[in-house]
């Protein structure tokens, strides 16, 4: 436990020190929130619930922040490998599982904080505070997304030689996960043949869970969302740990 904490602590220290990274990765979500959310708010009204578009996409943008930050945090172990620091950790009398879990929780924590910043900023732009319990539910889903996708990042990084493949991962893994998740549009308004793809996307359950917490409505039962996302997080952690253990330096 103390080893996991040590590695978590390093991640947090590095995160808090990289001010430019914190601000840099807020740019894109804030931009989307303002341009899409406020720009389309008067044009688009969500069918069934009658929600405004701004209120609708806030959970999606929060999930996006968590997703991007966590995948990136996971993939960062490639830097550690290239700059040699990973060796220092791997040669210590600790197990690789502990290292992997420390990295995962570290990445998930920073991703959660990034999502939280977006959430708090949205409160100022127009998100109405529903209930404390709702926020706790949203937080829970944010943490689960963070764990699942940091673990995914670590799994990918364990199989990657260097950062050259990063763009490929962003374009063919991360963006499709985001695009198909129903973060920007209601699942029910998609053509029938796309809907199954959406239901296969684990992020869908994260977005819907956060949406339930923040706005009180969701298209998928929040209990189902929780179970699917929790199972996916556990599964990704196991896969990530397994691949990380097999990785050679």
């Amino acid at each position: 436990m103390d080893i996991i904490y040590t590695i978590w602590l390093r991640n947090i220290k590095r995160y808090l020190r990289s001010k430019s990274r914190i601000i840099g990765s807020l740019g894109m979500p804030l931009f989307m929130l303002l341009v899409l959310g406020l720009g389309l708010n008067s044009v688009v009204q969500i069918p069934d619930t009658g929600q405004g578009y701004f209120e609708f996409i806030i959970p999606g943008i929060v999930a996006m922040s968590v997703l991007f930050t966590s995948v990136f945090a996971g993939i960062q172990i490639i830097w550690d490998r290239q700059f040699g620091f990973l060796k220092e950790t791997l040669v210590a009398p600790i197990s690789r599982l502990e290292i992997m879990l420390g990295q995962t929780f570290g990445g998930a924590s920073t991703a959660f904080v990034q999502g939280l910043i977006i959430l708090v900023l949205s409160l100022f732009i127009g998100l109405s505070f529903s209930s404390a319990a709702g926020f706790v539910i949203a937080f829970l889903f944010m943490v689960l997304i963070g764990i699942a996708f940091t673990a995914l990042g670590i799994a990918i990084a364990s199989r990657m030689e260097d950062m050259h493949g990063f763009q490929l991962i962003m374009n063919f893994v991360v963006f499709p996960i985001f695009g198909l998740s129903g973060a920007l549009f209601p699942i029910s308004s998609l053509p029938a043949w796309v809907q199954p793809l959406t239901m296969l996307d684990p992020l869908t359950y994260g977005v819907e869970g956060i949406r339930y917490g923040l706005t009180g409505t969701a298209q998928i039962n929040p209990a189902v969302c929780f179970m699917v996302l929790a199972a996916f997080s556990a599964f990704m952690t196991i896969v990530g740990a397994w691949l990380f253990r097999k990785m050679s330096i």
């Binding site: 390093r10 220290k13 590095r14 020190r17 990289s18 700059f83 040699g84 620091f85 060796k87 220092e88 040669v91």
Partner: peptide, 14 residues
């Protein structure tokens, strides 16, 4: 054992 690797293995951000 203690090791000093050929390539640097410090965390420069710490």
């Amino acid at each position: 054992i203690g090791i000093v690797f050929q390539d640097q293995s410090l965390d420069e951000e710490l």
